[in-house]
């Protein structure tokens, strides 16, 4: 019986392919793409100001709301944070990525890579939470700052309009630190992969031809590692753009895109506006991906 069934399938590879593909494809097409499509449609609906019910008629009214000053500000704030976080992650990722790619023994390399990937996969929420403890006014970071007598520096940093606040835990600076901490592994891995592909002979040749280490770095290593940086930046940028947990947990009451979406759909029940807001990051990410592809980032993934 089984053998006959087996022969039956063997003679019909197309049928087998169909049977294999149907469940996962149906699932993702119907559930996932279907939902995304519904989201898109909803962004063209609007909400009745009096009853709070969704009016299922095509309108661009909801999109117009996005360009109101308050929402424009949210977009600008979120995009600048994503930008700064991406730049900082790129810079901070280099030493460790370079060490793993060029100096670590194979054994050490395995361990270091595990050390980078574990925070990438695990406990996103708990890792955010840990900074609640660290940044607290009475917490460990303040203690160290006092220990080194740096209160003045901290006060000076926090006094800046726009990035400062009453304490680290309630300021954009604090959020920036947490964002970098959370997304850094997403930058280290592609940069390390890209650096791995820089031939050592090239670095040595550059040195032999009289380039100083810094020159070699700027003219040989950096251009070759750049696709890796772009690949990593896709993650750091996109993830910062859509995050609402960090702005909720750390930071002041000024909204980020994710937070706005979260509150529009939640307390306000305004799904059309939430949907239209979400299209912001989606469009920004599509443009970003197109640019990244031109810069060769996909080869580095």
């Amino acid at each position: 019986m089984l053998t006959r069934l087996s022969t039956y399938f063997y003679q019909r590879p197309r049928l087998v392919l169909f049977l294999f593909l149907a469940p996962p494809l149906l699932y993702l097409l119907v559930v996932y793409l279907g939902s995304l499509f519904l989201l898109l449609i909803n962004s063209f609906y609007s909400i009745d100001d009096f009853t709070g019910l969704i009016i299922r008629e095509f309108t661009l009214k909801t999109y117009a709301q996005i360009f109101e000053p308050a929402n424009r500000e949210i977009f600008a704030r979120t995009a600048s944070m994503a930008f700064v976080v991406t730049i900082a992650s790129a810079i901070i990722s280099f030493p460790l990525a370079y060490y793993i790619a060029k100096y670590a023994s194979p054994r050490l390399k395995t361990w270091l890579l595990i050390g980078v990937t574990i925070p990438l996969w695990s406990s996103y929420l708990v890792r955010v939470y840990s900074w609640k403890l660290i940044l607290a006014q009475e917490g460990i970071l303040s203690w160290f700052i006092r220990l080194f007598g740096l209160e003045g520096v901290l006060q000076w940093l926090l006094s800046f309009e726009g990035i400062g606040g009453s304490s680290l835990a309630l300021s954009p600076i604090g959020m920036f630190i947490v964002f970098v901490y959370i997304w850094l592994p997403y930058m280290i891995i592609p940069v390390q992969t890209a650096l791995e592909r820089v031939p050592n002979s090239l670095i040595e040749a550059s040195g032999d031809l009289g380039a100083k280490p810094l020159q070699t770095f700027r003219t040989v290593i950096l251009p070759m590692a750049f696709p890796g940086v772009i690949a990593g930046s896709i993650f750091t940028f996109s993830l910062t753009l859509g995050d609402f947990i960090i702005p909720l947990a750390i930071g002041n009451s000024k909204f980020f895109i994710g937070q706005a979406v979260y509150s529009y759909q939640g307390t306000a029940g305004n799904i059309p506006l939430a949907a239209a807001m979400t299209m912001g990051p989606v469009v920004i990410m599509i443009i970003y991906l197109l640019i990244a592809r031109r810069l060769g980032a996909f080869d580095a993934l």
């Binding site: 559930v31 996932y32 279907g34 939902s35 995304l36 519904l38 989201l39 909803n42 859509g242 995050d243 609402f244 895109i257 994710g258 979406v261 979260y262 759909q265 799904i271 939430a274 949907a275 979400t278 990051p281 989606v282």
Partner: peptide, 10 residues
């Protein structure tokens, strides 16, 4: 958040 709100809408 995109996946989340999309599923929420559905």
């Amino acid at each position: 958040i995109v996946s989340g709100i999309a599923l929420r809408t559905a």
